[in-house]
Design a protein around this nucleic acid. Structure first.
Length: 210
DNA sequence: CACCAGGCAAGTA
DNA sequence: TACTTGCATGGT
């Protein structure tokens, strides 16, 4: 990422320090969170996850047996709860059918092949699939989200309607193919976006990097 | 009150 | 392919 993009990993890391993503205790919790956080603040997702834990529902087996509307009730704070209940169940179905709900077995899958299969699940798009691959399974896949896109656009490095793969390719081509690096870099971009790169303010705040 | 948040799918032309 | 709309809570 030398010279392509001024918001380098090094600058971000030196300024913000390690972000220690994903904020979850188990890979399965990461996967559930990845679906719940679609277009939703993490704060709201935390409430939903906490509810699931409180009712001892945070496992593939328990969620599999739960009815959609019961699940919707538990994840209500995360918003879009009816859609997300279906999406979670679709994902759980996939986990059972493809891997017998064994995350260890899932981890053995070839990443790009698994990515295609995840995206084929209704409710899982590119970002959610990549978040699962990177943050739950530790695969070197770069995650592109709204902040990543916005920061690149503001620096004139991408058009605002650029395809996902196009944005992703910019990072992949310019970085070592390393899961730890991808993990921290994306988390740092989100951190920067949250604090300094606002949607309604094209000027942003004064960027602390440079 | 308005706006936003770690998207995605389905419908339309 | 390229728009548009529905989904929904909670924080600022």
């Amino acid at each position: 990422m030398i010279k392509f993009f001024p918001v380098t990993y090094k600058k971000l890391y030196n300024y913000f320090g390690p972000q220690r993503w994903w904020p979850a205790k188990t890979p399965f919790e990461v996967m559930v969170g990845a679906i719940l956080t679609q277009n939703t603040s993490w704060q709201n997702v935390e409430k939903a996850i906490k509810n699931l834990k409180k009712h001892k529902l945070l496992s593939p087996g328990k969620l599999n047996k739960l009815k959609n509307n019961s699940l919707a009730l538990r994840i209500k704070p995360a918003g879009y709860y009816n859609v997300k209940a279906k999406r979670l169940k679709n994902f759980i179905d996939f986990l059972f059918k493809e891997f017998g709900a064994d995350i260890g077995k899932m981890r053995l899958a070839e990443p790009l092949d698994l990515r295609k299969k995840l995206i084929a699940v209704n409710g899982i798009g590119q970002e959610t699939a990549d978040s699962i691959l990177l943050y739950a399974l530790n695969k070197p896949v770069f995650v592109v989200d709204a902040y990543t896109r916005r920061i690149l656009c503001r620096h004139g490095k991408a058009k605002k309607d650029a395809a996902y793969e196009e944005i992703q390719g910019l990072f992949v081509k310019n970085l070592r193919n390393n899961a730890k690096l991808f993990n921290e870099y994306h988390a740092l971009l989100v951190r920067l976006g949250k604090e300094f790169c606002f949607k309604n303010d094209p000027q942003c705040k004064e960027c602390p990097l440079k």
